[in-house]
């Protein structure tokens, strides 16, 4: 799990945190997803969390045209130039 996704999971309420940590590995495998489909909503929810973690990786996101570091750098420069908070 990436540091960013780990931070997200750690911020959740503890019962959810335990469930996500236990079941997230299943959401990354086709057979695991099939098992999760037996529980209403679990497949989509955990699949969503896994997908968010994957596409949050800077190199993956950059390939799709999204560069978070560049967005932040532009914001920082603009705030400095214009004296924004």
């Amino acid at each position: 799990m990436s540091a960013s996704l780990d931070e997200f999971v750690a911020a959740g309420p503890w019962p959810l945190r335990v469930v996500i940590r236990a079941l997230l590995p299943l959401a990354r495998r086709p057979r695991g997803r099939a098992l999760l489909r037996l529980v209403t909503g679990a497949d989509q929810a955990l699949g969503g969390v896994a997908a968010m973690g994957y596409y949050d990786q800077p190199d993956v996101a950059r390939r799709l045209g999204w560069d978070a570091d560049a967005v932040i750098a532009r914001g920082r420069a603009l705030r400095r130039e214009e004296g924004r908070p």
């Binding site: 911020a11 959740g12 978070a68 932040i72």
Partner: peptide
Amino acid sequence: FTARPPQMLARLYRDGGQ
């Protein structure tokens, strides 16, 4: 701010947005 959804959900939202 980092413009990275998982981190920002964790830091800016109650219960990490969950």
